[in-house]
Design a binder for these strands. Structure first.
Lengths: 186, 186
DNA sequence: AGTTACCTACCAATTGTTAGATAGTCCTTG
DNA sequence: CAAGGACTATCTAACAATTGGTAGGTAACT
């Protein structure tokens, strides 16, 4: 049952971290969400930094998988780009949660180095995917494509942040629509 | 000396909150930064929620003043819009700090209501200013102007967040430049 | 004498972490 | 096949540090 418990801890920790951040993640609440005791978490993770790094790593791995899936379902790169914001919309749908990468970017100063690395990997995954799909869509010149990928990622993250502060998913949709109108998004 | 102490607390608390968030703001470190004892803070603020609300309120008031000043120095609305991101750049220059509104938006779930209100006021101040200047610049149609103002605000906040996670001000500049290239910013 | 602005000393709750016990499972060995 | 030992996964109990907050004192100024 160890494998299951570890997975359950990772899943619950992700939910908690997306709502309260790395700083707001605590072992007692996490354990009770999983149905075990706080000390038992140490059987699966060395310490909080180790848990945080594992959660952040799993987060970008899951996101990478979702992005690949999205591209399979929408092979047309333009259509895939249109659906990209949906990844972030889902967090808001999930009880107004924030992208873990965004929350941890805010907490940057207080993050263990191992966690910082995984947070950056999350951004890299998004930018790489966007860059690839922009290329396939023939959008923008090759020189500025990665810059544009980063711009899209940052803008969507910002939209999610603003929408969260109002607990208003409609605001997220409006912002994304504005990005389309102004030309940032196709 | 009370007025000075209160101001010193507000200033130091703002710096701490922009680096560690509301949750990471603690009375002992704050007091030591000001040069007093933790208990003395309670002479000036009822409790942490009260302090947090005061800090957030002062933050948007200061920002509103800075924006007005910016418009005085650059009466041409287009020029003022070009300089707008500078407000956010300054936080990064200040030891890679984040906009307080962004940090607290991330912490939304754990914020006292009085603090939430001030965080939303900060966004309102920015959007109102952007909307006004966009109008003066004759950019966009009247119907979508507020949407565009919100989009600019969210995108700049997102750029600052991403740049912070890399401790890279140059990245912020590149992102802003991309927003210009793609047409979000003039 | 009263008010201002600060202090020391403490409390209770929270939190990351550790030590050591325990019940069940699995593998080896007589 | 039964017995014993090792391993797995969890527990109870506690510790030390941190934190928001309170009680009550004190020196200076009005």
């Amino acid at each position: 049952m160890s494998r299951n418990a570890r997975e359950a801890i990772l899943a619950a920790a992700r939910q908690m971290a997306q709502a309260h951040g790395y700083g707001g993640l605590n072992f007692r609440d996490l354990a009770s969400a999983v149905g075990i005791k706080a000390a038992s978490i140490y059987y699966h993770f060395e310490n909080k930094a180790d848990l945080g790094a594992a959660v952040a790593q799993r987060y970008w791995e899951d996101t990478a998988a979702e992005l690949d899936e999205l591209l399979e379902q929408s092979p047309d790169p333009r259509a895939a780009l249109v659906r990209y914001p949906w990844i972030f919309r889902r967090s808001l749908e999930n009880e107004n949660r924030l992208c873990l990468g965004s929350f941890m970017s805010a907490e940057y100063d207080d993050l263990p180095d191992t966690v910082k690395t995984q947070v950056q990997a999350f951004a890299d995954v998004n930018v790489a995917w966007l860059g690839k799909v922009l290329t396939e869509a023939g959008l923008g010149d090759a020189a500025s494509r990665e810059d544009r990928a980063r711009a899209i990622f940052a803008a969507i993250a910002g939209a999610q942040l603003l929408a969260r502060s109002r607990a208003d998913i409609g605001l997220f949709d409006t912002l994304v629509e504005s990005y389309r109108t102004t030309g940032l998004l196709p």
